[in-house]
Design a binder for these strands. Structure first.
Lengths: 254, 254
DNA sequence: CGAACGATTGAATTTTGTCAACGTGGGTGG
DNA sequence: CCACCCACGTTGACAAAATTCAATCGTTCG
């Protein structure tokens, strides 16, 4: 019932940060991860081998998401939680950087998940042989930082409608292979509570906001987060997404 | 009246992310930046040579803060602004990563500022000769991500008191060479409006919150952001700073 | 069937933003 | 030197936004 052969996630990966590798680099990658995978069930909290001194340039073990959705989050002492980022197939988890033991970041599987585990030694070797892989991973890392900045902007200022609209747009763009288009259904494997933890809102307010968007004919939410965008223009306007940036995201990159 | 000779900022740098370089690496660095500096006055908006394809591993031009305070911020179309990070001496600006033209991040000098400009070629060569520099910069980059995560946590959930207390603690730790201790005065070169843009609050509410903290005997604010912590325990409690993490930050690292 | 979880909704409360007014201090130009 | 201005901080009153508490409903799972 699980995936049959090689590196799903990097080949089936979609637009935004597709690690667009050349075929030789790609096959080298596939050869390397063969037999080095981790499977985790939905809901599991994932512990990575943190091993103190991994400095993204090599040495530390690196993890890649092959399938499934993951979140990384932090919690305050009084029980509140903030989801820092959502990770999809093609993204990497660098313990000590995005995740890991430092500063109590917790990584959790939203769905059943497959990870590729690459030892520091192998990773360094691969980087030397295929510099484009390093570049691709770097680009992905920057995209993650960019996402965090955008989310911060809407967390700080910006209404509940704004950040929810933005988050839905972002997750649609990243998780589907059609872009952000009206009328097409996509699914987000999160509860309203989790969406609230991501957007800095209470679950109740997420619910209210979604229903208001629905009442205003902007989107339709059915059956646990199946979402259809009805009025794309208004949605991006609420999300305060810069049309130019959006176009850049949508048009398949070179 | 400006600094007389070599790389201030890296030598005078303090604890948290001090780019603790060995003396040979340090002198190589100083030799390289000699004659490659940019000076900017307080308030200036700084444009970096973005040049599309700088992938933190080399090639792109890299900038280092030698002296002064900088902020990087994003703005929504309707005029609201969010400060994403504050950069102090010792930090690096990698256009395209933390800053740069992509996605309309704006970099501004809070005080008079000196930057070191290192061309991609030179930077690559330096990295090859002194791998520890690369490691140090990487570590600094991770510290920046960590800061952003912490700030996100308090932006999303967390009261105004919490994020302000946290921000003050962070800036004190990063900008002074004594740690976070009671009774010692330090200065933050920001207006309440800017502090609000950093904390996701209105200037008015920043003012109210500061005065409440002062009324409760937790700190003293005088004369445009000269700050003295009076009750450190309560302050860190409000900031929801994990005591263990804090200790790690305070104790000079190996 | 019962239990548990998630979604939905209303009502009361708290937090924060907005608007407006005022004071103050540091500059600038006369 | 003085008058003036302007940016910043401070405060109050009010409005808007979001949280909390609580009750209800539908589904799913054992």
């Amino acid at each position: 019932m699980h995936q049959t052969s090689d590196c799903a996630g990097l080949s089936e990966r979609h637009r935004p940060v597709g690690l667009g590798l050349g075929s030789d680099a790609h096959s080298a990658f596939c050869a390397l991860i063969d037999g080095h995978r981790m499977e985790r069930r939905a809901g599991t909290i994932i512990t990575l081998e943190g091993e103190g001194e991994g400095d993204g340039n090599g040495d530390g073990t690196v993890y890649f998401v092959l399938s499934g959705w993951l979140i990384s989050s932090k919690s305050t002492l009084d029980g509140h939680r903030q989801i820092v980022d959502v990770m999809l197939p093609g993204d990497s988890l660098d313990p000590g950087s995005a995740g890991g033991d430092m500063s109590a970041i917790e990584i959790q599987a939203l769905t059943d998940t497959t990870l590729a585990v690459i030892e520091g030694r192998d990773w360094t070797r691969l980087l030397n042989q295929h510099p484009d892989i390093g570049r691709a991973v770097n680009r992905a890392g920057k995209a993650a930082t960019w996402r965090m900045c955008e989310r911060m902007l809407r967390l700080g200022k910006g209404s509940a409608e704004s950040i929810i609209a933005f988050t839905l747009c972002e997750l649609c763009l990243r998780s589907t292979d059609h872009g952000l288009i009206a009328g097409r259904k996509f699914h987000i494997p999160m509860t309203q509570q989790q969406l609230g933890d991501l957007c800095g809102l209470s679950a109740v307010h997420v619910c209210r906001t979604l229903r208001r968007l629905e009442r205003n004919g902007i989107l339709t939410v059915t059956d646990h987060m199946d979402i259809v965008v009805d009025d794309l223009d208004t949605l991006t306007e609420i999300a305060e997404i810069d049309p130019d940036t959006l176009r850049q995201e949508i048009i398949p990159a070179a």
